[in-house]
């Protein structure tokens, strides 16, 4: 048995949002944004998290980052339960875990220069002192992400989308994190620039032994960058497997359908697509049993009664399905 705990372990994580209404503002519905999920992220790997919009990817990422409080469950970092830490402990955890978002612009203070944005974390965490030392370190970080020292005194609006994402990455790297959560970090970029940022993330991972939780809805990008991939549907994880195994041998009916609808840039390939009918059900009070059963071609009566557990069907390959699991 491998004794070392995973870098990050999520157990029984749930996040529910109440929808209130009526004159006593009573809860009238509950969104099960994340519904009892388990995840391990090993040191040095990239865990991809895919699924359609609203399935709970960002909520998972934010709970892990301790940006929002989970309704239930635990988050352990390097074997230590960090679900409820606060104060100095939480501040220290922020050095170990950083996050970058889809729209870097929204998270970059428009009135601060690049030097200020990237340097701020150095000051907060006392990683550099004195103007000279801070500036030297910022320049070093900018160069690491492919920007130049003459960008130091510019403002976010002077940069293109790809460059802004580099600024966000430089800011995240400033504290030398162990885990970087990338929430749709390349989704808004045009393909040529997207390729630049993906390559950069891969280079940085090799250089600094980083671990990534890579959240995205684009399955091609996730397959490319991930070591393992977890597929989410309506708040639950339905399948987890090494990236290649998941794409070569998807087991869950949802994963199969999702993969077969990804457009492939090869006009000679005439695929038989498995187009899913219908749309994801309402996340308010989702149906009992398997959340996918309303769209599933294989659904059986038991699927409506019992939620299938995520079980290991082959080494490293976990599926939550009564029929194919």
């Amino acid at each position: 048995m491998n004794a070392a705990p995973p870098l990050l372990a999520v157990r029984g994580l749930s996040k529910h949002y109440s929808v209130t209404g009526g004159f006593l503002a009573r809860e009238i519905a509950r969104v099960h944004a994340v519904d009892d999920i388990n995840l391990d992220i090993e040191r040095g790997e990239t865990l991809g998290l895919v699924g359609e919009s609203g399935c709970g990817k960002s909520t998972t990422g934010r709970c892990i980052m301790r940006l929002i409080e989970p309704s239930a469950g635990t988050i352990s970092f390097e074997g230590r339960d960090v679900t409820h830490i606060d104060g100095e402990d939480l501040r220290r955890l922020r050095r170990d875990m950083q996050i970058i978002f889809q729209d870097p612009f929204a998270s970059l203070n428009p009135r601060h220069t690049v030097a200020g944005i990237v340097g701020e974390a150095l000051v907060i965490h006392r990683l550099a002192t004195g103007r000279r030392q801070i500036e030297e370190r910022v320049v070093q970080l900018l160069e690491t992400v492919g920007l130049r020292s003459d960008h130091l005194n510019r403002f976010p609006h002077e940069f293109s989308g790809g460059q802004r994402q580099r600024i966000g990455i430089a800011r995240a790297l400033a504290v030398e994190p162990k885990l970087l959560v990338c929430d749709e970090a390349v989704s808004a970029l045009d393909v040529s620039v997207q390729a630049q940022v993906i390559n950069l993330l891969e280079d940085l991972q090799d250089k600094f032994a980083l671990t990534y939780l890579f959240i995205a809805h684009d399955l091609s990008v996730v397959e490319h960058i991930s070591t393992r991939v977890a597929v989410m549907y309506l708040g639950r994880i339905v399948e987890v497997a090494p990236a290649r195994a998941l794409y070569d041998n998807p087991r869950h009916p949802y994963t199969k359908a999702l993969l077969s609808t990804v457009p492939i840039p090869d006009p000679k390939l005439k695929r038989k697509r498995l187009v899913l009918t219908g749309e994801p059900p309402n996340p308010f009070n989702p149906p009992p049993g398997c959340h996918f059963r309303t769209r599933c071609p294989l659904a059986e009566p038991r699927c409506a009664e019992i939620a299938p557990a995520l079980l290991e069907t082959m080494p490293g390959h976990m599926v939550a399905c009564h029929v194919t699991g």
């Binding site: 393909v191 040529s192 997207q194 390729a195 630049q196 993906i198 390559n199 891969e202 399955l219 091609s220 990008v221 397959e223 490319h224 960058i225 990236a243 290649r244 794409y247 070569d248 993969l259 990804v262 492939i264 840039p265 090869d266 390939l269």
Partner: peptide, 17 residues
């Protein structure tokens, strides 16, 4: 520059940029 789900050889190789 586009990553492809169906390209086995391409997994984690550098994308053309």
């Amino acid at each position: 520059a586009i990553p492809r789900v169906d390209a086995k050889a391409q997994h984690r190789t550098r994308l053309a940029q």
